[in-house]
């Protein structure tokens, strides 16, 4: 599991890859939150293109970042979640909070 963080015009793009579960969600959270605190971006894009697995620990991760972005006054975009990850997201209702897009 890893995350590559890019900073572009007031946007933070977090390219996630591997498997997101309870074991590695904590490290991802720390890395992303560090970038958010440093940059106070208008938009956070969580890119799931390279994520092979995610359980509800990933929902906690997305929910937490959604709240954080609200505090900063920015927005959250979930990009390219594979079908089975979208299924977990739909179950949680997070698709009603954050915008999910495919590019």
């Amino acid at each position: 599991m890893s995350v590559k963080i890019m900073n572009e015009d007031n946007k933070i793009i977090a390219l996630l890859s591997g498997e997101i579960d309870h074991h590695n969600a904590k490290t991802l959270r720390q890395d992303i939150d560090f970038a958010l605190r440093e940059n106070q971006p208008e938009e956070l894009i969580l890119d799931f293109s390279e994520v092979g697995f995610m359980d509800s620990s990933g929902i906690g991760l997305v929910m937490g970042r959604y709240k954080l972005m609200q505090e900063i006054g920015g927005s959250l975009i979930v990009r390219n979640p594979p079908a089975h990850i979208k299924k977990v997201m739909r179950l949680s209702g997070i698709d009603r909070l954050a915008s999910i897009c495919n590019v």
Partner: peptide
């Protein structure tokens, strides 16, 4: 506080 979503059983039940 640990960002647990409270969805564990809901996922098991649904999947």
């Amino acid at each position: 506080c640990e960002e647990r979503a409270g969805l564990g059983f809901a996922v098991m039940e649904s999947f």
